[in-house]
Amino acid sequence: MCDHASSNDPYPGLDEYIDNLAYKKENLIGILHYAQELFGYLPDKLQWHIAQKLDIPSAKVYGVVSFYSFFTMKPRGKHVINVCMGTACFVRGAEKLQAELEKQLGIKTGQTTSDNLFSLDSLRCIGACGLAPVMMIDGKVYGRLHEPEEIRQILAEYRSEPKLATIGL
């Protein structure tokens, strides 16, 4: 059922990871973490594959994927922007930051730009409360963001990165 034709097919890597686990069903969450790292997201087909591999109903896999906010069933943009919505950031203007990002990117939180460059999301506290309000782009933290111009400049840095010839997924 699965397409194994492409040369950089991540399925064999995933299967090997699963085969090497001493306990499989008990490690469903660990497997999903690994799969999301390999594939970038967890589409239906992949969930079904994992279910078969572990010999459990695919409804159970879906149940777990949909329960945890860390897992995503939609492909993400090249850069993931996360606005911290912890209480400390909230009282220091995280909502304004989020609105400004939504305005500049032209998307709502949870969406991806049409050029697949940015996904905008929010998360709860990254522990950099001293820098509130903060956002994180691909793991890099930007703090004390109050001016729209600052945000524009940061986004511009990512926009001006040389584009990859093809995006092979």
Binding site: K25, L28, I29, G63, F67, Y68, F70
Partner: peptide, 23 residues
Amino acid sequence: KYGAGAFVCGEETALIHSIEGAR
């Protein structure tokens, strides 16, 4: 064992179910 972003997993019985690989 890694969590996957669910606040309720701080509750001990929920945390145990999560370690077992469930919701």
